[in-house]
Design a protein around this nucleic acid. Sequence first.
DNA 1: CCCCTATACTCAACAAGTTGAATAGGTGCG
DNA 2: CGCACCTATTCAACTTGTTGAGTATAGGGG
Lengths: 186, 186
Amino acid sequence: MSLRHAVLAALSHGEASGYELAKRFDVSVADFWSATPQQLYRDLEKLERDGLVEARVVEQQRRPNKRVFTLTEDGRAALRDFVEAPARPAAIRDEFLVKLQAVDAAADPGALAATAEARLRRSRDKLARYEQLRDRLLAGRAEDDFLRHGDPVGPYLTLLAGILYEEQNIRWTTLVLRRLAERREA
Amino acid sequence: MSLRHAVLAALSHGEASGYELAKRFDVSVADFWSATPQQLYRDLEKLERDGLVEARVVEQQRRPNKRVFTLTEDGRAALRDFVEAPARPAAIRDEFLVKLQAVDAAADPGALAATAEARLRRSRDKLARYEQLRDRLLAGRAEDDFLRHGDPVGPYLTLLAGILYEEQNIRWTTLVLRRLAERREA
DNA sequence: CCCCTATACTCAACAAGTTGAATAGGTGCG
DNA sequence: CGCACCTATTCAACTTGTTGAGTATAGGGG
């Protein structure tokens, strides 16, 4: 049970409705803990029953009302406990790597190359988004400046992980494409 | 349903019993598709019912008998279809990143630093294992040599992904440790 | 001789994640 | 004026993945 904790972590950066959380997950957390809206709504309910979050209805005129969730004191304590407990090792589930692992059994490596190209485009898009986010976070300050007395270090460091990951991914995928092309010629 | 495909991919590199598959997963596939032995046994049964793999009992004297699984023609065809179909984007589930995201809410960043150090050790271990595996695969040949007429490119390229991933991970985690230490001093 | 580890697998219960659809008002575009 | 898309959420069914225990045989070390 760990999406719970991802939700608590997300809410620690400010209250949100289920819908808003879904978007927040999409831009910032998706790359290390993805979740569908349905999952979020379900877990928010559970968290509410357990007293870790509180909901309050916000009436809106031009759109449907929403339920905005805040961490309770118990929620904050649970989050602290979670942060300080040892983490289980990361689990990666990357279908592309499975396909590549078996590429020698395929008739046509061209199809996989197309998949690799899609992946490359995706990585570039993500990287661009991440760098935009970083610029916004830094707001002109140098990294050192920001990290030493800027407020939250967490979001910056995880963002950096995303940036480095995508950069490395781009290099690797490019290399794979070259090798697959060589193979196709031979 | 995709552990199925990871199993087919693994079996395409040679027949194996459930137990042997579990070990193969542990050394080579775990980093992009992890599975417990229980999961493997369950899926192997399903694959057998669906006619994608065949089992044959191998009697052994000094240890329990085992059921060795091989791909059937249908299994090979299913694998080919899978490899050529587009891949869904990778899902990462990294608890450490969730904790780091919320580190500013914790009382003691020292606990997270300990977790980061454990992660660093793990990455270094993995990297060492991967490089050993690479040396064994290359067997003295240069990469170019191997990839151009060496037999299977798949396992080499995925191994390379693992190596690059861990190298990058080590750099990033080191950086995180430095920043957390700075934070603790302040 | 006993315990630990390795091989080889099975069973059961549960937790977590995925998929698809339904509802319902509002905004923007041609 | 109709159609598509955005906000905001709920329901239900399903597939995957996790945890923990249990069975049985054999070899090695103290």
